[in-house]
Each structure stands twice: as C-alpha cells, then as structure tokens.
C-alpha cells in the first residue's frame, strides 16, 4: 500500500501534463477568450507571464482541446535553426519532406501553394529564445493568413515587449498570465490533490496554511509545486521513521511549511 503522503508528493512534481490541468476561474476566462481569438482572422496571439505562471500548461491544454476540431501543432521547445524550423513545419503542417536546406522563400512558396481548407494553429512555447530574425519571419508568415501562431514567452516588461518592433503592428492579441491569488491558490492545491484521490491531505489545507504558502511563493505555481513537493517529502519521511506522532496531521503544520521552504531554498537559512 502506498502512503498518502508519497502520493500527495507526486502530485506536485513539476510536470506539464494536460490531464493535471486545474480549472481556475480567472484562467478559464482567459482560456475562453484565447479560444475565441484563435477563430478570428489574421491574429497573432502573444501569451506572456512570469516563469511558472502556467504558460506551458495553458498551451498544452489548448493544443489538446483544439485537436478535436482543428489542426494544431505544439512546439514546446523552440527550434532555433531557421532552416530546421521551416523543415519541421513543412513536414508537420504541409506533409512535405525536405532533404536539404529550406529557406524562407522556399517555405513561403510551399505555404502559398498548399491550399489547406482550414488554417492550422501553431503553438510556440518558450518563444523568448527565438531570434529577432526568425520572429520577423514568423510575423510575415502569419500575415499570409494561412498559418496562425500562438506565441508564449516570459514576461519582461510589457512596455518592453510593445516597444520591440516585431510586436508592434501584428500582434493584436496579448494575454497575460499571472500568479494566483490566495483564494485561487487554495483551490489549486486542493483540486490538484483531489484529482489524485488524496482527499485526506487536501482537507489538511486550511486558510492559515495556504496564506503561509502564499507568503512564501507569492502564488507562483511552480514555486508552490516545489514547496509542496518538499512539504510532503518531509511528511513522508516522518511517516517512514514512525515519527508522525510528533507532528500535527489534522492540518498542515506551519513549522513543516517553513522546513520545506528551507529545504527547497525558498527561505534561505
């Protein structure tokens, strides 16, 4: 039999799996508006936010949901070489194999020649890693209206982004993902645990514990995952050493949260 603490710990592994997607009110509204704007013609969509605010999760979920009705292609790691980028798209989207180098003009030709009856959606994660030049070409590609790009990148300053020439004219839809609010954080933690049938540990999170966690992570999903992984690691260690009697188990102990924060480096002590 597996320990509930070990199970709960695994819930907070830092992975992006659409099955683990938790519906949060604010995020769902954004999600809906993104789905709507994908339907609109000639729109490049920019999704941005600080690291760990769930951009990758969002894109993954989107690609899964859209796949029923549309041709969707998700690239979660950027293809940095330009020729490689076109070749991959040519193969995935237009089913055209290319042996040698493929340059922009050639690829543009493929795009124009192939008459797809539906605009395919291309999701590019970690787009801050693409070069300015490639970004420029992506911009031109979306201008042909034959491809639609959704681009996710880390937030620098929004002003900075807008100032960047290649975002100035073509990106009409910008969507920002933010850290969660304390109330959302509680829902996030509990829903995540309940999805894995860890009802007992889910009920251990009262508002006091959640507020403590919020103070340490500022509602950042990745930091919260890290902290809770550490927390349940500590709980399961106490359990393994038969020392559970020495700590509270009806609710999450603040002391253990702090210990987890020290362990994961959120508090430096």
């Amino acid at each position: 039999m597996n320990s509930i603490f070990v199970n709960s710990k695994n819930v907070f592994l830092d992975t992006v799996n659409p099955k683990d997607y938790v519906q949060l009110d604010r995020v769902s509204t954004i999600y809906q508006s993104l789905k709507d704007s994908i339907k609109k013609p000639l729109k490049m969509i920019l999704l941005y936010g600080k690291p760990g605010t769930g951009k990758s999760m969002f894109l993954t979920k989107l690609s899964l949901d859209l796949a029923d009705t549309q041709n969707v292609f998700l690239y979660d790691t950027p293809i940095l070489d330009e020729s490689e980028f076109y070749k991959t798209l040519a193969q995935d989207v237009f089913e055209t194999k290319y042996a040698g180098e493929l340059n922009f003009t050639q690829f543009m030709k493929i795009v124009k020649d192939k008459n797809l009856n539906q605009v395919p959606v291309i999701l590019l994660d970690e787009a801050q890693l693409y070069s300015e030049e490639l970004m420029e070409k992506i911009r031109l590609l979306s201008d042909t209206r034959t491809l639609k790009f959704v681009i996710a990148l880390h937030k620098t300053e929004k002003e900075d982004l807008i100032a960047k020439e290649h975002f100035q004219t073509r990106i009409w839809e910008t969507i920002e993902l933010e850290n969660s609010l304390p109330t959302e954080l509680k829902i996030y933690i509990q829903k995540k645990l309940m999805k894995a049938n860890c009802f007992d540990t889910a009920s251990m999170f009262n508002s006091k514990a959640v507020n403590k966690i919020y103070k340490l992570t500022h509602g950042n999903y990745r930091d919260t995952n890290k902290l809770l992984y550490g927390l349940f690691e500590i709980y399961s260690t106490y359990e393994k050493n038969n020392q559970l009697y020495s700590i509270k188990t009806n609710q999450i102990s603040t002391k253990l949260i702090e210990m987890a924060a020290i362990h994961t480096g959120l508090i430096d002590a």
């Binding site: 690691e233 500590i234 260690t237 106490y238 050493n241 020392q243 002391k255 702090e258 210990m259 020290i262 362990h263 508090i267 002590a269």
Partner: peptide, 13 residues
C-alpha cells in the same frame, strides 16, 4: 531527507 538536520536549521531560522 534528514529531518533532524532540517529541524535544526529550522530552529536556527
């Protein structure tokens, strides 16, 4: 995980 060590660090903190 060394909980004893961690508890010590926590106490110090």
């Amino acid at each position: 995980l060394n909980t004893r060590e961690l508890e010590k660090r926590w106490l110090k903190y």
